[in-house]
């Protein structure tokens, strides 16, 4: 699937700082850029450069001090916590470095979890989750608990959970950071497939140059400022 020239995310003058004691430490300063629909973008930079903070702001997990993030025409910086929660549930899929699966739930139950917030029937929820797990190649591991799966398999369950609600955007924070080389390759290939075949816009934070290779666009951050763009 081709990427369009329509921006799905518009970031304008975004700034964020954290308080350390009584002192404000700037993390992001006046960030402005667009992310096109169907784009696979990698945010890179050294530790503390603000890339995870930027990802959190784009995904509606944190609030900016100033500036705006417009996703699919909606300025999410103006939404209340409750509205943001339902916006995230239907628009964004999340992949974390440490998978963040619920340990007492099976792979299938973990994938069903985001569907509880939809109007789907129980049968439909299970069907969707089974399909998502099959897509990531874990159709035979549905009843396994996270502790019974390898790191790579757990991350694939997390990817199934991220895509099961069919969100337009997938955000991934160091998705290969905790995986061995082979598993990391599998996960990246899967994300690449999701981008190419399903047209998902993927925004990924990574340190891994191999992961960054899969992206169409690389954006570098240094001390909270965008320094470089490469394709």
């Amino acid at each position: 699937m081709e990427q369009s020239s329509r921006p799905v995310v518009e970031i304008k003058g975004l700034s964020k700082s954290y308080m350390r004691g009584s002192q404000a430490v700037p993390v992001l300063q006046d960030i402005t850029f667009d992310i096109m629909e169907g784009e696979f973008i990698a945010l890179m930079g050294p530790s503390g450069s603000g890339k995870s903070t930027l990802l959190n702001l784009i995904a509606g997990l944190d609030k900016a001090d100033s500036g705006s993030v417009i996703v699919g025409g909606v300025d999410i910086t103006g939404l209340t916590e409750t509205d943001l929660a339902s916006w995230r549930a239907s628009n964004v899929g999340f992949i974390f470095q440490f998978y963040n699966l619920i340990p007492v739930l099976t792979a299938l139950e973990n994938v069903v979890l985001p569907l509880l917030l939809t109007r789907l029937s129980k049968k439909e929820r299970i069907n969707h989750a089974v399909t998502a797990l099959s897509v990531v190649g874990l159709g035979d591991r549905m009843d396994h608990y996270p502790s019974q799966l390898s790191g790579g398999q757990q991350q694939r369950v997390a990817i199934a959970r991220a895509v099961v609600t069919d969100p337009a955007i997938i955000v991934a924070d160091e998705p290969t950071g905790d995986l061995d080389r082979v598993s990391a390759g599998d996960v990246l290939n899967l994300m690449d497939r999701l981008n190419r075949e399903s047209g998902k816009t993927i925004i990924m934070v990574t340190h891994d140059p191999r992961a960054a290779e899969k992206a169409h666009v690389l954006r570098h951050l240094e001390k909270g400022v965008l320094t470089d763009v490469s394709s």
Binding site: E81, A85, W87, R88, A89, F94, N100, P114, L117, R161
Partner: peptide, 11 residues
């Protein structure tokens, strides 16, 4: 886990 649930949209 609560953070993950909130991330997924659970209010």
């Amino acid at each position: 886990e609560h953070a993950v649930l909130k991330t997924l949209g659970f209010g």
